Computed example of a mutant assay.
Amino acid sequence: MKTNKTIKNSITILILFLTIIGFSQTKSSNTVSLDVFYSKIKSEKNPQIIDARGPEEFALNHINGAVNFNLESKDYDQQIAKLDKTKPVFNYSIGAGRSVWLADDLLKKGFKEAYSLEGGIANWIGNGKPFYANSKSKLTLAEYKKIIAENKDVLVDIGSIYCGACKKVKPVLETIRTQYGANLKIIEIDLEDSPQVIADLKTVKVFPTLILYKDGKIVFKKEGLGDLKNDVDVALAVK
């Protein structure tokens, strides 16, 4: 009996994440911009804000007033039952995958309104909205600006250790680092280590975000990996 139950639970979790992956590829009709998400929250006296990331992510940083819903937990239905169906529910995750799934599931369960934040926590913190962090940022905005000013060419990688797309950037950065050596300064900024500098920059909408500076000026800003290696080569080839 226990084996069958374990298999059933494993299949349920697999289906859940396959669904999440599917949602993350397309924008749901319940996904709203940061401005809409923020204004709706401000209009509520006691907004229901749900962080759909894992508990370890939530412990490091989250939107002020949010509570954590672990979509894999056994008490998921009990967590849902604590919410008021007549009031809006505001969901977010690292990007939009888990929060989109949660918003759609809440609507299926009879909730009046449920929204997912476009760009997730990256968009919220990256545009300077109020948030909680359990530690002080390792890098300050002043230190960031000093690095930009003191180096001719600087490539900045902004992301999160929990972001799947961000992990794909790392081997490309190593290739670039090997090729350019001391001629190109590379800064890697993770949400978990330096959330405040990400907030102070007010330029991040999604993870990863790549910014290339040349003589203190932005040459390009990329949202997502794309063809980073080629873009860097082309930009640095320009005299």
Score class of each variant (00 low, 15 high):
Met1Trp: 09
Thr3Gly: 04
Lys5Arg: 06
Asn9Ser: 14
Leu14Asn: 07
Leu14His: 09
Leu16Ala: 07
Leu16Thr: 10
Phe17Glu: 11
Ile21Tyr: 10
Thr26His: 12
Lys27Phe: 01
Val32Thr: 09
Asp35His: 12
Ser39Leu: 05
Ser43Val: 01
Ser43Ile: 05
Lys45Glu: 14
Pro47Tyr: 11
Pro47Glu: 05
Arg53Lys: 05
Gly54Ile: 10
Gly54Ala: 13
Gly54Met: 14
Pro55Leu: 00
Phe58Cys: 06
Ala59Asp: 08
Ile63Pro: 11
Asn64Phe: 05
Gly65Cys: 06
Phe69Cys: 11
Lys74Tyr: 11
Tyr76Asn: 01
Gln78Glu: 11
Gln79His: 14
Lys82Asp: 04
Asp84Cys: 10
Lys85Thr: 11
Thr86Gly: 05
Lys87Ser: 04
Pro88Gly: 08
Asn91Pro: 02
Tyr92Gly: 03
Gly95His: 02
Gly95Asp: 01
Ala96Tyr: 02
Ala103His: 01
Asp104Cys: 10
Leu107Tyr: 08
Lys109Thr: 07
Lys109Ile: 02
Gly110His: 14
Tyr115His: 13
Glu118Gln: 15
Gly120Arg: 05
Gly120His: 04
Ala122Asp: 07
Asn123Met: 05
Ile125Pro: 08
Pro130Trp: 03
Tyr132Met: 09
Tyr132Asp: 01
Ala133Arg: 12
Ser135Ala: 15
Leu141Gln: 08
Tyr144Ile: 08
Asp153Ile: 00
Asp153Gln: 07
Asp157His: 12
Ile158Arg: 07
Tyr162Met: 02
Cys163Thr: 06
Cys163Leu: 06
Ala165Ser: 13
Cys166Arg: 07
Lys167Glu: 01
Lys168Leu: 08
Val169Phe: 00
Val172Glu: 05
Leu173Asp: 01
Ile176Tyr: 10
Tyr180Lys: 14
Tyr180Met: 15
Leu184Tyr: 05
Ile186His: 03
Ala199Pro: 12
Ala199Gly: 15
Thr203His: 12
Val206Trp: 05
Phe207Asn: 00
Lys214Tyr: 03
Phe220Ala: 09
Lys222Glu: 13
Lys222Asp: 07
Leu225Tyr: 01
Asp227Glu: 12
Asn230Met: 12
Asp231Arg: 15
Val232Thr: 06
Asp233Met: 02
Leu236Arg: 06
Ala237Gly: 15
